[in-house]
């Protein structure tokens, strides 16, 4: 069994180890998780599901807290606009 799986972050394929979170995949891809209300790019801050800075669109569901969510094969991950 492979220890890696593939997800798509903003359309780009990213290989990541099994057990990694969606937030980690977004950081590896160098993509912001969300855009703030005044248009700033934002990435994870607290790493424990409290700050909501890492929320993104995961398999079409917006506002998903990516640091509390494990990557699954072929997951579609997009920055929250």
């Amino acid at each position: 069994m492979s220890n890696e799986l593939t997800v798509r972050v903003n359309g780009r394929q990213v290989s990541i180890s099994v057990g990694a979170t969606v937030a980690a995949a977004m950081m590896i891809a160098g993509q912001p998780c969300r855009t703030s209300v005044t248009g700033e790019p934002r990435g994870p801050l607290c790493g424990m599901g409290i700050c909501y800075e890492c929320r993104a669109v995961v398999n079409g569901i917006p506002h998903s807290r990516t640091c509390q969510m494990l990557c699954e094969p072929e997951m579609d991950i997009r920055s929250d606009e």
């Binding site: 979170t21 937030a23 607290c46």
Partner: peptide
């Protein structure tokens, strides 16, 4: 982005961030 909590970055590394 990439300014994070100290525990925050550690949590991300524990969660698969190289």
């Amino acid at each position: 982005p990439n300014v994070m909590g100290a525990g925050g970055l550690q949590a991300l590394v524990k969660s698969g961030l190289p």
